[in-house]
């Protein structure tokens, strides 16, 4: 029998609009100084929105910020941890190499912020079949929200799908399998296909049980 949840899974989507701060820097020292004082929305823009914009590239551009987010930010606020990590990296480099190359006009790094939108879609699921159907229909922005951003809010490190599989359907093994997929080494479309694959495989087992 296919287990049915009491509370459905609501698919939301995450959209964002970049804000220009007018702040631009031309060397590493200035970069580190501004990262120290930048609001969280700025850090978000240069890490997560960057990732969302480039998620389809194969191979993906090297993106240390995103890796910092996944490996460092499991136990603290996004802004503070990431800020410290990036500033420390730059300052260590500066003290080693004293690299203060001044870039010419037009090559500056522009600090940007983000305003984020949380939008409910019309898709919700009470069981795994409905879940697979919903996941097929939502945009990758929804997948991004439920996989990447979910890991940054409590319960930290856990994506929304795994949380719902485990707590609402008692599907702990499926939850673990989805959780162990590394979202940083594949495109969102690839990730979507793999999650749907895992859900369908589990459905097959349940249907024949």
């Amino acid at each position: 029998m296919i287990p049915r949840a009491e509370k459905p899974f609501h698919f939301y989507t995450r959209l964002s609009l970049p804000l220009l701060t007018g702040i631009k820097v031309r060397n590493l020292r200035e970069l580190a100084e501004h990262i120290k004082t930048a609001p969280e929305s700025v850090i978000y823009q240069h890490t997560h929105r960057y990732l969302q914009q480039h998620q389809y590239l194969v191979p993906e551009p090297s993106n240390d910020f995103a890796y910092w987010v996944s490996s460092v930010l499991q136990d603290d606020e996004l802004g503070d941890e990431l800020r410290r990590a990036v500033v420390e990296t730059i300052e260590a480099h500066l003290s080693r190499k004293g690299d203060l190359r001044q870039l010419p006009e037009g090559k500056e790094f522009h600090f940007m912020g983000t305003v984020r939108f949380s939008v409910p879609t019309r898709y919700q699921a009470y069981d795994l079949a409905e879940f697979a159907d919903g996941l097929r229909r939502v945009s990758v922005s929804s997948l991004y929200l439920h996989i990447f951003e979910a890991r940054l809010r409590p319960p930290l490190g856990l994506n929304d799908f795994s949380l719902w599989f485990d707590s609402e359907l008692g599907e702990a093994a499926l939850a673990k399998k989805v959780s162990s997929l590394d979202p940083y080494t594949q495109t969102l479309e690839g990730l979507r296909a793999r999650i749907i694959g895992l859900v369908e495989k589990r459905l097959e087992v349940l249907r024949h049980a």
């Binding site: 959209l15 964002s16 609009l17 804000l19 929305s41 983000t114 305003v115 984020r116 939108f117 949380s118």
Partner: peptide
């Protein structure tokens, strides 16, 4: 067009970091 719609939806609310629709 999507960005324009987000812009219209955010009119007067751009000081919020998260807009829930």
């Amino acid at each position: 067009l999507r960005d324009y719609m987000l812009l219209f939806l955010s009119a007067g609310r751009l000081d919020e970091t998260m807009i829930r629709l």
